[in-house]
Amino acid sequence: MKRYGAVIGLDAAQIAEYTKVHAEVWPDVLKQIKNSNITNYSIFLRQPENLLFAYYEYTGQDHDADMAAMAADPVTQKWWDLCMPMQRPLDTRKDGEWWAPAHEVFHLD
């Protein structure tokens, strides 16, 4: 199992809507997340900075392949089409990144 974290901004005007849609995530999106070997997935909101921090644990053998399968899923693509306009990627992210990775510096079980 490997842990992953990432950060992105959230449009202040979209906080209520983003919170609402995540209270009612589409079942097929949840199924795809699980099929991609992701567990213990959480998204946290930090205000007033309007930063989202996502955390998940990956239990599969090929993270890149599982993420590609998720990205190819039509329902997940529609979910992202809904959520991405509400998000504000960090200026410091690398080319090709949407959520900027955060690297673990401490963990206690």
Rank of each mutant, 00 (worst) to 15 (best):
T76C: 11
T59E: 05
I33K: 01
V75Q: 07
Y41D: 04
Y56F: 13
N50S: 15
M67H: 01
D28G: 08
G60A: 02
V21T: 14
A54C: 14
V25L: 07
N50K: 11
L51A: 08
D62K: 10
E24T: 11
K78P: 00
V25G: 04
A71S: 13
L51F: 14
Q61G: 14
P48Q: 08
D62V: 07
D28Q: 13
Q32P: 01
L52F: 12
Q47P: 04
I33F: 06
F44K: 14
Q77L: 10
N50G: 15
H22A: 08
N37F: 00
V29R: 00
V25T: 13
K31E: 14
P27V: 09
Y41R: 07
V29H: 01
Y55G: 04
S42D: 11
A65F: 08
I38V: 13
D81Q: 15
G60M: 02
W79I: 10
K78L: 08
A65T: 13
H22T: 06
D81N: 13
T76W: 05
K20P: 14
V29T: 02
D81F: 06
Y56M: 10
Y55S: 08
D73M: 06
K31T: 14
M67F: 03
D73S: 09
N37S: 04
Q61D: 15
Y55P: 01
W26R: 09
T19C: 15
L51I: 15
Q32G: 00
K20I: 08
N50Y: 15
S36N: 03
Y58V: 03
I43C: 03
V75S: 02
S42K: 08
K78G: 01
A23S: 13
T59G: 05
Y55I: 08
Y41T: 10
L45Y: 07
A65N: 06
T39N: 13
A72W: 04
K20R: 15
M67I: 06
A23W: 04
A71I: 06
P74Q: 05
W79R: 06
Q47L: 15
L51R: 11
A68I: 12
V75A: 09
N50T: 14
D66A: 01
Y41F: 15
D81M: 13
E24S: 12
V29W: 00
F53T: 07
Y56C: 11
V21G: 05
E49F: 13
A72P: 02
S36G: 08
I38Y: 01
M70T: 03
A23E: 11
Y58N: 03
